[in-house]
Amino acid sequence: MAAASDDTHGDMTPMLDLVMQLLMYFILCANFLGQEIDSTVVKLPDSASAVPLDKREGDILFVNVNEKNQVVLFGKDPMTMAEFEYELVDRIGPRAPKDDTGRILTTIILRADAGADYGSIFQVLTLCKKQHFRYFSTRLNIKGT
């Protein structure tokens, strides 16, 4: 019979190792990039021809269009087209980096909800182009993921 003073200590080290491994996994998979890629704002349509993201993108501006055809910019409330135009003309456009000829170097990345209307998306593109934005791409879910 074991003496009452004998303590039984489980070896905690393997458990700690396992927990650390799990922790590392969840930290690496965490997605804190913010509202510009928040899947609750827009549900991107699937596309078979979308290509993996170009990591060399320079200055970028995410323009989300939600299902209600409102424009959602990072850190701002959903806005109407008129409000987006005001934002573009008065705030975003003047601050955007430009080349020697005055062309805006910022890439507009359109993230439109699958249920957004084409008319709204066309308006967004038109407004951006009117403010001399030249580079556009659209984000889509790669089909099968």
Binding site: N31, S39, R139
Partner: peptide, 30 residues
């Protein structure tokens, strides 16, 4: 171990694997 579990639960709760995003360049020439 307690602290590590706290962190683990935090990250598990916020675990939100999103679909892989791709892109299509849009042709809007100058």
């Amino acid at each position: 171990l307690d602290f590590t579990f706290q962190l683990l639960f935090f990250f598990m709760i916020y675990y939100n694997p999103s679909a892989l995003e791709g892109q299509i360049e849009m042709n809007l020439p100058a």
